[in-house]
Design a protein around this nucleic acid. Structure first.
Length: 423
RNA sequence: GGAGAAGUGGCCGAGUUGGUUUAAGGCGUCGGUCUCGAAAACUGAUAUAUGGGAAACCGUAUCGAGGGUUCAAAUCCCUCCUUCUCCGCCA
């Protein structure tokens, strides 16, 4: 959520920011609502001052056992009605302001390239060389099904499309990737935390999934709970309505969770394999930081995410997203795109964002700065998506005979070096 | 799922016949006096949000949350949430 003061002070800046996101937001409505609110508040306060004085007077007279002048109560009563009436109006106006404000996306950072879509993203660097194969590399779902470690037919019978079942060494590989990610990040000072997969509406609103992105969430209507689309939601919410000590910042968390997304509006896109499923595993990194350091903390976050790919020897490129591509709550986002040998493409495997105070304002997460309470900055990034890593390993480590070599750093977790066909 | 109890400032804890409560008192924290220094003692300060003001300061709201009754609510009424205890069920 944006600070309404920014809109009061520099409405042009906000308008430009929205335009750069291809969003045409009519802020004049908000401004007039804000004006109305201000007038109502001052009117109500004046009425209350009057009423408080009258009440005080009544109390004083009662205590002294004196008579209350005729019409005194009636006058106060009229005042009360007026206050109630104005209060009702104020509530409506305040709700409208809130409703408006909560749907306005974050202002992109100045360093974010202006652009309409992905073609305006800026590729920052390439890390690692894609391997040259002496044969035509296969897709991961072909490799996985042949090795009997992936089963999409079985999954669609049980649940539907966009689900996967892991079998045999696939299970070991999945768990190994998760453990490897967690251990690596913990060495860098991230604290592991395991959080609920079902969260309430308030939490979803806090990180910005609600109200705008509701259609992409699985909802348990009976209990008014949502399945998390990422561990970011529960992890960032752990400090909702909290005041942190300045010396405790930055606070860094790593969390493994399953993630659930409806993928509404992505029909026909990545329909095969592990790339875009309704349920997938992810290891997420979340930071709460001093606002002065959030820019550099984003760079560190990107390095930490990239580090696990480098250790796995998976080639990737780093992309700075353009204003038209960054997410609703983000002010700046880097994507890490890993190499998929099957179709020779880089695909997103991690998204690292600096939200600045956008989420912190929604969640009321503050820290003590010289005895004053200030909003923290929040960041998060995938560290990294587990299912996509699984897929990338199959495609990049495949051998001509159909087997898959296990990346060296994973071997102490899997306990085997290669996945061979059992047929 | 059923029954009961509770929720007051950073913490503990008074206040429930509605009106000197602008939330007592204590602890903690910060400052001052005293001291070579410290402790003790004494003394002052010590919530958040928001509006006005250059500032001092002033106004308003907040006693789990939201409604209601009333001239006036921590106090009365309703709904919800959370925690604890007991019973039932259960990995």
């Amino acid at each position: 959520m944006l600070d309404i003061k920014i809109i009061r002070k520099d409405i042009e800046k906000v308008k430009c920011a929205m335009l750069s996101r291809n969003q045409d937001v009519d802020l004049s409505k908000l401004v007039s609502l804000d004006m109305e609110r201000k007038i109502l508040v001052s009117q109500i306060e004046q009425l209350r001052v009057k009423r408080n004085k009258w009440s005080e007077e009544v109390g004083k007279l009662k205590r002294e056992n004196k008579d209350i002048p005729r019409g005194f109560i009636a006058g106060a009563s009229a005042l009360k009605d007026k206050i109630q009436e104005q209060d009702k109006r104020l509530l409506i106006v305040e709700n409208q302001i809130e409703d408006f404000l909560v749907r306005i996306p974050n202002i992109p950072d100045e360093s974010v390239p202006i652009g309409k879509d992905a073609s305006d993203n800026r590729v920052v660097k390439f890390v690692g060389e894609p391997k040259k194969f002496s044969f035509k590399p296969k897709y991961h779902w072909e490799i996985g099904e042949k090795l009997d470690i992936l089963d999409f037919n079985m999954a669609s019978e049980i649940s539907g499309s966009r689900f996967a079942i892991l079998k045999n060494e696939g299970c070991d590989l999945e768990r190994s990737i998760i453990s490897f990610f967690l251990d690596t990040h913990k060495k860098k000072g991230y604290k592991e935390i395991i959080v609920p997969y079902l969260v309430n509406r308030v939490s979803m609103r806090g990180t910005g999934q609600l109200p705008n992105l509701e259609e992409d969430l699985f909802k348990c209507a009976n209990d008014d709970l949502y399945l998390i689309p990422t561990a970011e939601v529960p992890v960032t919410n752990i400090y909702r309505d909290c005041v942190l000590e300045e010396s405790s910042l930055p606070q860094k968390y790593v969390s493994y969770s399953a993630c659930f997304r409806r993928e509404a509006g992505s029909y026909g896109k990545d329909t095969k394999g592990l790339i875009r499923n309704h349920q997938f595993d992810k290891v997420e990194l979340v930071k709460f930081v001093n606002p002065e350091t959030s820019d550099e903390e984003l760079e560190f976050l990107v390095l930490d995410a990239g580090n696990v790919l480098e250790l796995l020897k998976l080639p990737y490129r780093l992309v700075l997203l353009s204003t038209g591509e960054i997410g609703f709550s983000s002010s700046k986002t880097y994507d890490l795109e890993v190499w998929f040998a099957g179709d020779g493409m880089y695909r997103e495997i991690s998204s690292c964002s600096n939200f600045k105070d956008f989420q912190a304002r929604r969640m009321n997460i503050k820290y003590l700065k010289n005895k004053r309470r200030e909003l923290v900055h929040t960041l998060n990034g995938s560290g990294v998506a587990v299912g996509r890593t699984f897929a990338a390993i199959l495609e990049n480590y495949q051998q001509e005979d159909g087997s898959v070599t296990v990346p060296e750093v994973l071997r102490k977790y899997t306990g085997f070096d290669v996945i061979n066909s059992r047929r």
